[in-house]
């Protein structure tokens, strides 16, 4: 975070945030390259208007918001395309791709509905509080708590872990 009145340096923000943001979006997408592309695109958009973004109280929040918006849009588009392809080729056998570096937690997250998955990732990897997620998603705090509760329950089933309903911090 820059000192008050001092514009943030683009390279410094990039160096500090790129990897963290990418990991968050990787957990959401399940595809590291897709996540890297989205975060890079968010930084490109930030750079275009860096003279103003750098003077915001929290430029990182701006980049994070753009990256997540891009991620959600892409995920919806790819889901639509996938759904279309499946309708066109209903009898084609499904072949598993290479997944040597897939992480079990990422696969478990992929089974959650998008809102729950987003809340879980923002909470556990983005270190956002329930109220911050509620503000970001433009929903009530209770809705976020519900997403987190269901998300934890869903992951517990997938990972064969006992359900733990308590939030780390609210």
């Amino acid at each position: 975070m820059p000192a008050a009145g001092t514009p943030a340096d683009f390279d410094a923000v990039y160096a500090a945030q790129y990897a963290d943001l990418t990991v968050q979006l990787y957990a959401y997408f399940g595809d590291r390259q897709e996540a890297q592309d989205v975060v890079q695109e968010a930084f490109c958009r930030a750079l275009r208007k860096w003279s103003s973004v750098s003077r915001y109280d929290d430029p990182v929040a701006w980049v994070r918001r753009v990256a997540w918006n891009l991620a959600v849009s892409r995920w919806r588009r790819s889901r639509t395309a996938l759904s279309f392809l499946r309708r066109q080729r209903p009898h084609e056998p499904q072949v598993e791709g290479p997944n040597t570096d897939r992480i079990e937690l990422v696969e478990a997250l992929a089974t959650l509905p998008p809102a729950q998955r987003r809340a879980m990732v923002l909470h556990y990897l983005g270190d956002l509080s329930v109220s911050e997620i509620a503000e970001r998603e433009n929903v009530a705090i209770g809705t976020v708590k519900s997403w987190l509760h269901r998300g934890r329950a869903g992951l517990a089933v997938q990972l064969h872990q006992p359900d733990q309903p308590e939030a780390r911090r609210a």
Binding site: A15, T22, L47, L125, A167
Partner: peptide, 23 residues
């Protein structure tokens, strides 16, 4: 929270594999 260490593990395993294109 039993999930916290799993997410920490995810972060620690994924971070080194991120290859930033750079500013």
């Amino acid at each position: 929270d039993p999930l916290a260490p799993l997410f920490e593990d995810l972060r620690s395993r994924a971070l080194p594999r991120v290859q930033p294109p750079g500013p």
